[in-house]
Nucleic acid binder design. Structure first.
Lengths: 187, 187
DNA sequence: TATCGTTTTTGACAATTGTCAAAAATTACT
DNA sequence: AGTAATTTTTGACAATTGTCAAAAACGATA
């Protein structure tokens, strides 16, 4: 829980009261490797904070699994589209390593927003950071070559390369596993 | 101004008081075709609501202009990264058509947030919609073929094809202008 | 350590898309 | 309407990446 509190302090410093209320809403969840946090078709009712472990979001396209994001320590994770709209999820969320998570339901979060302006502010600021992050990833993915994408990954998020099977990384970068393997062997 | 008020009511219904305060902060701006709302290196200090007209965000890569988004009627536009971080913008924003915009500064918006929880909520909800939008675009851009991207555009946002030069659209889709031209002629 | 299952690499080939240059079409302006 | 400027199309070719299949490497487990 301390990880969570420390992490959100980076977004916006909360009052003690708000922090306490926040703590009351999050519940600890421990899930083993390879289990699913969410499967395609389910409605995602929770937002999670990942204290320890790794996971991936993926969906099926023409019989292939497309991993489009990873989550690691100190990431907030959820199936964003489903969590916000409360429509069935298109994606699956699967544990790549056993994980310790903290979970809050959408209802609880909404209640917190209503009672604490500062918590809604925290989330507004968090959204800004996440938006900037996806925007950057988007621009890279679209306009860089496979080799450049690999170099980026090496420099910016090398932990992904160390902790995740190559096949998942390939689809994350939008290239085939064979191409990624060949690129890697040139370095 | 009525356009703006009607549009934000789709995100979250504001009290009369908040609406009035909001109105006081937005200023009308009229800009002719081809002018720049922002150029690379400037700090983006304003958020705009586009009442009428069209514009594009683009940046330079290896001497080429990469258009990565378009704005049309009822879009909020800004150089998001620069507006949020107040660092110099990487991108340029240029008018594709003469436009009527409503402008609010970052300071004014921050003041509104401090005085009106409901306005911060409105923006939080707007961020959610914009996040979902970019996430969808990202997934499409990365995992679809050039032809599929064109078909998507035809079905979902045909106004882009009608109002924007082909070269801009090609870079928006992440393909060369020649390829886009050939795809289009097959239909 | 031997074995099974999974992940990664390699090779041959095909498909898609990009690049460059020139022609054609369209648009804007006087 | 006529001219210049811009935008779009076309052709030939090259480069990149994908696909399929098989081999090799690696890891977990008995």
């Amino acid at each position: 829980m301390q990880h969570l509190l420390t992490h959100i302090a980076n977004f916006y410093p909360l009052s003690t009261e708000a922090k306490n209320k926040l703590q009351d809403c999050f519940q600890k969840v421990i899930i083993p490797k390879n289990e699913f946090l969410l499967t395609q078709g389910q409605i995602c009712r929770h937002l999670y904070f990942l204290e320890k472990g790794a996971l991936r979001g993926f969906y099926n396209l023409d019989g292939k699994e497309i991993t489009h994001w990873f989550g690691f320590e100190n990431d907030f994770v959820t199936s964003f589209h489903s969590f916000i709209t409360q429509e069935p999820a298109i994606e699956n969320i699967q544990l790549l390593e056993g994980a310790v998570l903290w979970s809050i339901s959408k209802e609880e979060l909404t209640t917190l927003f209503n009672h604490h302006h500062e918590i809604e502010r925290l989330v507004r600021i968090a959204y800004e950071k996440y938006y900037i992050r996806i925007e950057e990833r988007f621009v890279n993915a679209q306009f860089k070559t496979a080799t450049e994408l690999y170099e980026n990954l090496l420099q910016q998020t090398p932990h992904i390369l160390e902790r995740v099977p190559l096949g998942h990384i390939a689809s994350y970068l939008g290239i085939s596993q064979e191409t990624l393997s060949r690129i890697r062997n040139k370095f």
